[in-house]
């Protein structure tokens, strides 16, 4: 095995192959980033309407709850194939990259909406009441009061989720998206040893995830320090 590694190293570690891996890495990162950022925006919109007290929005709320419950329970790969064939069936010639992005957005919206909802519910109700009494509309209460305080509860799980999704994107190799896992498969298929091909894959996933994990931890600590007293106050007011 070691001999094979030494033999293949000169043909594997080339500039062209390096660029190939870099493109695959960027595809993986782009899919996760687009999916999660758009999912985050849609998640906020979903939560805003899902938690609305307006009676005539009840059917929409039921629909949104159903969406969240369903899309959190569908396997990523199943949905990927479904989007691929449904888009082709309806005549949309989406590229494989965009099929993967749409899939991630659909699932990320459902997951992130739950993270956001939990974060918003973690902010003490007295903040809502106070804003209410001061004539804040619901949208303004969210914008100025609730959402800024809920970041401390939203960011840590959202970051973990984003990192998890970087790994999940490997499943899109099943439909042929040229991301990291596909690159590993490709190099293995042209005779590079599986250890070297998938080992590189592993290292690149780690190189992508680890700094993000550290960044997430840093943001979490900063937010916790900022809201340390806040959370203590809120705990005290519950007693």
């Amino acid at each position: 095995m070691i001999q094979q590694f030494i033999d293949q190293a000169p043909i594997f570690f080339t500039l062209n192959n390096g660029l190939y891996w870099l493109r695959a890495l960027m595809t993986t990162l782009s899919m996760a980033l687009i999916g999660c950022v758009v999912g985050f925006i849609f998640g906020f919109v979903l939560v805003y309407f899902r938690t609305s007290p307006i009676p005539w929005l009840l059917p929409l709320r039921a629909l949104l709850i159903a969406y969240v419950e369903i899309f959190r329970r569908i396997p990523f790969l199943v949905l990927t194939f479904l989007i691929l064939f449904a888009s082709r069936g309806f005549g949309f010639q989406l590229s494989l990259f965009w099929v993967a992005c749409v899939t991630i957005v659909l699932i990320a919206t459902a997951y992130i909406a739950e993270i956001i909802r939990a974060g918003i519910e973690a902010v003490h109700r007295n903040q809502w009441e106070c804003a209410d009494v001061m004539n804040f509309s619901r949208a303004r209460t969210m914008l100025y009061v609730i959402v800024p305080q809920s970041w401390v509860f939203i960011v840590p799980p959202a970051f973990s989720y984003f990192i998890m999704f970087i790994k999940e994107t490997s499943l899109t190799s099943q439909i042929g998206t040229m991301e990291l896992m596909s690159a590993g498969k490709y190099f293995n298929s042209i005779g590079i040893s599986p250890l070297m091909a998938y080992g590189t894959c592993l290292l690149l996933y780690f190189a992508l995830s680890y700094p993000l994990t550290r960044l997430g931890r840093r943001i979490e600590v900063r937010l916790k320090n900022r809201f340390k007293g806040n959370m203590a106050t809120l705990r005290a007011s519950d007693q």
Binding site: N135, F136, Y144
Partner: peptide, 26 residues
């Protein structure tokens, strides 16, 4: 206007911002 037992200041805002926010934005 109402003042609550638990103060209910907006925890994400400075003292000055807490006092200014409603007249300014609402």
């Amino acid at each position: 206007a109402m003042v609550f037992q638990q103060f209910n200041l907006f925890q994400n805002m400075s003292v000055l911002r807490n006092v200014m926010i409603a007249p300014l934005k609402i």
